[in-house]
Design a protein around this nucleic acid. Structure first.
Lengths: 238, 238
DNA sequence: AAGTGGTCTAGACCACGGT
DNA sequence: CCGTGGTCTAGACCACTTT
């Protein structure tokens, strides 16, 4: 706690620490602004400013009349920011997920590094296909550290469901708070050609993601590949 | 002015309108928070909250002790968010720009649409190569509406300099406030192979950008192409 | 020294959600 | 109805920049 910093920053830092320490469950609200003001002996406006920062950082979510809650990650299905299908050809189509394979074994170097695993440690390897209207769109290789995710080693593959992050939360108590992504372009390998039902080795877009918990520990590493001709990413810059 | 909205929102809206109307030059500060509070007859905290929003939207920039100023766009060189060179092979390399060609003529349909030009209207067409350490990195086609940019029709090509947006401001009084980009993947055409000195038709990343002024008028349309093997885009998501 | 934005306080009332 | 966060006020003092 650096007392040279503004009080709202000190408060922000302490609340961040307490969030990382899992002091509040996901469904219980933080203390009210009034309570925090009394506990920390600051004005309520200072508390509000500290929570403003946390909200902007995506750590908490406020609901008028209910309280302030730790925010869940909502980007599990976010690959559809990148990959699009012709909506007219697939009206009302719903995104689906299919787990193709699950194994316990040594993760590749990139995964081990991202997850902070030693060279000997095993991990859980998932292969997953994401589809729209039964059309394969994205092929994913996912690696999880074994320790917190043992519950997934035995779970029947058809019990995984369409979204993984809610599953991590429900089955393993692991909550994804944020992630880092890296986007590159490559050429499809034989494995990709088959999974994505490509005609020929075509350009593909590769998204590498490391997901982290509220405490900053890496929870998941995944690499997603999709047909580059379906790729489009739009953004507004300022 | 919707009086059902909170006052700080109404104030934000009115300041946005006045910024778009170019009521303040780029180098003069907005009225002080004290003055705004008096003019609009609200508390200074309400003014600060309104300006907080403008700052977050990237419309203004605050400097303690100096004042609040309309923000300039700073993403002219931002293609280097996407395209990277091996920094070790090019130590201390500086990005450069070279204008290859300039013509007056009919813009392609996509440019005309983006710029809001009629089918008959002419535009200024620039072809530009961006390099690092004399290595071509990105090949750009840029279209400008003729009316506000006539000063560029006669400017010697070697007087354009490395950055275009400061040039637009200095020579034509046109200020870019924000832009929209769309990123896709394609295959190099013959023209790209030559400009980028590629060995063969290779995958390229295409960035399409429309740039807008503070008043929301489209000012520039450009399409940039670069070798996909140099492409990498990193982001943190929450 | 004067003026700017940055931080902080101690209240008030409003809008919304749950009891 | 009560408790929550949302808005708003009217000050005070601090840190920084310019004159």
């Amino acid at each position: 706690m650096d007392s040279r910093l503004p009080r709202y920053q000190q408060l922000r830092d302490d609340l961040t620490r307490r969030i990382a320490a899992l002091e509040w469950s996901l469904n219980d609200p933080l203390p009210t602004e009034q309570e925090l003001a009394q506990t920390y002996d600051v004005a309520i406006g200072t508390v509000r400013k500290a929570i403003d920062v946390l909200e902007q950082e995506g750590r908490v979510e406020r609901f008028q009349g209910r309280g302030t809650f730790i925010r869940r990650a909502t980007f599990d299905q976010s690959l559809f920011r990148f990959f699009r299908f012709n909506a007219k050809a697939h009206p009302g189509a719903l995104p689906q997920s299919r787990i193709l394979n699950r194994e316990i074994g040594r993760p590749p170097l990139a995964a081990a590094l991202a997850l902070g695993l030693s060279e000997q440690a095993d991990g859980i390897h998932l292969q997953r296909l994401r589809l729209i209207d039964s059309q394969p769109l994205v092929f994913e290789n996912i690696w999880l550290p074994l320790a917190p995710f043992t519950a997934l080693a035995d779970l029947p593959l058809d019990a995984f469901g369409d979204l993984l992050y809610p599953l991590y939360e429900k089955r393993c108590g692991q909550v994804v708070a944020y992630a880092k992504e890296r986007l590159t372009v490559s050429t499809a390998r034989a494995e990709d050609v088959e999974a994505l039902q490509l005609d020929t080795p075509a350009p593909i877009v590769v998204v590498e993601r490391t997901a982290f918990g509220h405490d900053g520990r890496p929870l998941e590493w995944r690499i997603s590949r999709g047909n580059a001709s379906h790729f489009a990413y739009e953004m507004e810059i300022r």
